[in-house]
């Protein structure tokens, strides 16, 4: 593991003081699910420092309430805005969830490393995700589709708790209508009119069509889901050095100075949050590390 970076990053140096918050305007609000919203944020100064890599996050601040790290869920090519998808889980995300068009929000970032979209060129790409974990992977999907010819088969395996909790339905339907991205959805339990897969997301892996010898897997979800997904992907023949995961820890500063997000010798905010699995494996199952 260690502090070695697995991928390119940007953001460093674009801000003179990494502790300083930049005011942004909420340009658009979209309610995704009862507890999940997507915000489009536009800088109130200039558009400098808006470049980001898929997988990077911003620290989002609501006036007087607090700050939380949230992955960017938008498209790289829309360079003048940040898109974030936020699920209400605490006081700050609740405050963010109440923001309306025209409100101001504070931004620090983007911070952290990226998903290995460059390293995956020429291989099949398998994305495995669950719940809100689809949001940090959405920039990857945009990127892969925009550069479709550079990749082999693209597979997106997505699990949600119930059909009602499937995120980005419109995107999923749109992507499904393309025939160059294989999307498989599953839910933990369903009632009513659901006729799709039922079972955890790991059950989709065995059925999916990809070449395990020439695949890059990107896995985003709760740790327990990523651990079992890694086992299943390994069973199918993908090596640990071709699997990438996204870790989540308490973050206060976002730039490796406050200490909170450490996993062993790694600062998740600065050295992660995306890790190649073989670099995280030795500590992945250590309890309370």
């Amino acid at each position: 593991m260690g502090t070695q970076q697995t991928s390119k990053r940007s953001g460093a140096g674009t801000q003179p003081d990494p502790m300083l918050v930049r005011p942004f305007t909420v340009r658009r609000v979209r309610r995704e699910l009862p507890d999940t919203t997507t915000l489009e944020l536009k800088s109130q100064a200039d558009d400098a420092g808006m470049a980001f890599l898929p997988g990077q996050f911003n620290m989002l601040y609501t006036y007087g309430v607090g700050e939380v790290p949230i992955s960017i869920s938008g498209d790289l090519v829309k360079g003048e805005i940040f898109v974030h998808t936020i699920r209400v889980v605490g006081a700050v995300t609740r405050a963010i969830g109440k923001l309306k068009q025209g409100d101001t929000i504070g931004v620090r970032g983007p911070y952290g490393g990226s998903w290995p979209v460059e390293q995956a060129i020429g291989s099949d790409v398998v994305l495995v995700t669950g719940g809100i974990g689809l949001a940090p992977l959405r920039p990857v999907i945009y990127y892969l589709l925009a550069n479709r010819e550079k990749y082999g088969r693209l597979v997106l395996l997505y699990g949600a708790r119930t059909p009602e909790e499937i995120l980005f339905r419109r995107d999923l339907e749109k992507w499904r209508s393309r025939f160059d991205l294989d999307i498989q959805l599953t839910v933990d339990r369903a009632t009513g009119s659901w006729r799709g897969n039922v079972g955890v997301v790991t059950t989709l892996i065995e059925r999916a069509a990809f070449d395990p010898q020439h695949s890059t897997a990107m896995v985003c979800g709760p740790e327990i889901m990523m651990r079992f997904t890694a086992l299943e992907l390994e069973k199918q023949g993908i090596q640990h050095d071709r699997m990438y995961i996204s870790m989540e820890r308490n973050m206060k500063c976002g730039v490796g100075l406050c200490g909170h997000c450490q996993i062993g010798s790694s600062f998740v905010c600065r050295d992660g949050p995306i890790y190649r699995l073989d670099k995280m494996w030795s500590v992945f199952t250590r309890r309370e590390l």
């Binding site: 007087g64 309430v65 607090g66 700050e67 406050c258 200490g259």
Partner: peptide, 26 residues
């Protein structure tokens, strides 16, 4: 030891807010 926490607050009028960085403990 160098760990810190961030504390955001605002006054009662809401006109003024600030961020304090405070020593924290693991």
């Amino acid at each position: 030891c160098f760990c810190t926490n961030m504390e955001d607050s605002s006054d009662l009028t809401g006109q003024h807010a600030e961020r304090q960085r405070k020593w924290d403990s693991c």
